[in-house]
Design a protein around this nucleic acid. Sequence first.
DNA 1: CTGCCTCGAGTTCG
DNA 2: CTCGAGGCAG
Length: 691
Amino acid sequence: MSLLERTRRLQNSLKNKDREESAEFLIDELIESLNEHALLYHQQGGSIISDAEFDQLLNWLREMESAFSGPVRPDSPSHRVGAPPSEGFEKVKHRTSLLSLGNAFNGDELRAWYERALRRLELPLDSNIELVSELKIDGLALSLSYENGILVQAATRGDGQTGENITANARTIRSIPLSLKSGGQKVISSLEVRGEVYFPKSSFDQLNESLASEGLKTFANPRNAAAGSLRLLDSSVTASRDLAFFAYGTGPVSESIGGNHSEELRVLKALGFQVNDHFLQSLGIEAVIDFCAMFAGKRDDLDYEIDGVVVKVDSLALQERLGAVSNAPRWAVAYKFPARESTTILRDILINVGRTGMITPEAVLEPVEIGGVMVSQATLHNEDYIRGKDIRIGDTVVVKRAGDVIPAVVASIAALRTGTERIWSMPSSCPACGTLLVRLEGEADYYCSSSTCPAQFMRLVEHFASRDAMDIEGFGAKLAVQLVTTDSLTSLDDIYKLTVDQLLLLDGFALKKAENLIESIAATKSRQLSRLLFGLGIRHVGKTIAELLISSFQSLESLSQRTEEELSEVDGIGPVIAKSVAGWFSESQNKGLVASLSGLGLNVAEDAPEGQDGDLPLTGKTFVVTGTLPSLGRAEAESLIKSKGGKVSSSVSSKTSYLVLGENPGSKAVKAASLGVQIIDETELLTMARA
DNA sequence: CTGCCTCGAGTTCG
DNA sequence: CTCGAGGCAG
């Protein structure tokens, strides 16, 4: 059984508390897996479980060791901070070890930590002591030694006791001062500064772009990029990478630079270090909990990754009284945000056929929890994407949820390959109909070119019934599959010929449900013509182009008689779309479909658009809607804007007049801000529309 | 031809 | 939401 499988099994039995195994057995298992994980992490530079998972396992181990009366094994990782560093750089022993921190995953765990501290200080449980909360930068811990104000050594954290001497590389980082400013006080003879090296997100994107353009493998995330860049043996390459450093504390010092932590931070800043501005000094723990919640929501607005908040007791005197357990101080705790990124095994790569015949590879993943949901599949876009990232079946891969929603495979970890991985290649024929797949010159995607492919037809039926097209209530993907595989449908117009008896033959249909569906299908006959046109699934004709075509030609009849030249005269229609539309209407099968739909009583002609605009309140304004609005649905907001003469667009650009911002927005809010586009909320939109 | 601005297509989980 | 690609102005 692989390490990952063993770990997952262990996690399950601990999580569900169905502990069939003895405590002793579980402790042994925990120690062994943790030690193996630590080895992978420190020596190969890649882990197969997330930091949060590792911490959780370690917590369980500590809990069980303290509950279990027997002696703690000498090789238990609860004694240590990590595993020994790898070869390649000179080893350096830290004068005082770099401790790791205990974790808290929610407000209650923060309160519990705070109460433990108060109890140990023999203070009443309702006392408020000074705390400092700092952002926990997701980078690499570094210890910098200064002698008489000059940087003499930089060492990585390593296992906490011994790190690696990376002084040459650290000297290339601009935010690490090579000599200290006097800071208004006398030069300190010996000072050790601790902090985090990180890769700014913006520079990270640029680095990955340039690595990709040279055909090199990209880094999975800024943290890996920072680690990789810092451990390069050629420091001139490190210099070309835009690394940065935040100082957050001190190690051994020859003379005190302050009586409390917040003072130390101010002195560090005066000495020339970059100190993160987002920190909070507070009395008591409640303000800290608010601070954590606030930054959990703001983490995307920062140009560096953060994975939590570090909370410290401000007074150094109190810190000393609190002391440390074997490897973690009692005076500090790390609040961890839910992980948005995790690693798992890529079990297989399957291919999907879209309604246009477009082929998309799909990753079949060993289920893994990311940001509170289990993820078991993710799109791999196309062949080039898989090649470019060198993703192989059996690989350990980094998975994240892009924009907090859609899972994406970001990278593979080559260091963890065992040799049994297989390079994937695009199948030569369609899995549904066997037609040869083709990739046209200059295009990124393969297509199944069959016009009778059952997979394409299933997706077309689903699309036809979907919300933005005919919006047939109760008609989704599952029903589309059922109807097509049972041959109840062979053409789109068959949808309107379905009978109750036919539906009763399907799984899961009883009389009432069948009657309701027939009724809701019939109710869609009078849908706007642009919805029907969109539903037909003509390549390059989406919602917007369908609306444009209908407002130009009013009926399917009229549209079908237009030549390519006539179509391209419409503003917004070029040769490619014109060819696609004219081509579709020229096929005899499609001519028959249009005639049949018309005969079945569907709305195939629209009234000419009314010429009155100019004095509508939103005329000439372009809107983009993002996030969830408090009262209006997305579609409602969009139709309101259109009915008042405004334009709705799907992406923010310099031409956008207003961004209507709702809850949980994605990257559009950032883009709008950077372009200086005015941002409004629903209330303001409603006011403008009324005017 | 190049650089915007848009649009289209496919997409995950609960 | 993200990607690729069509349309169009300069």
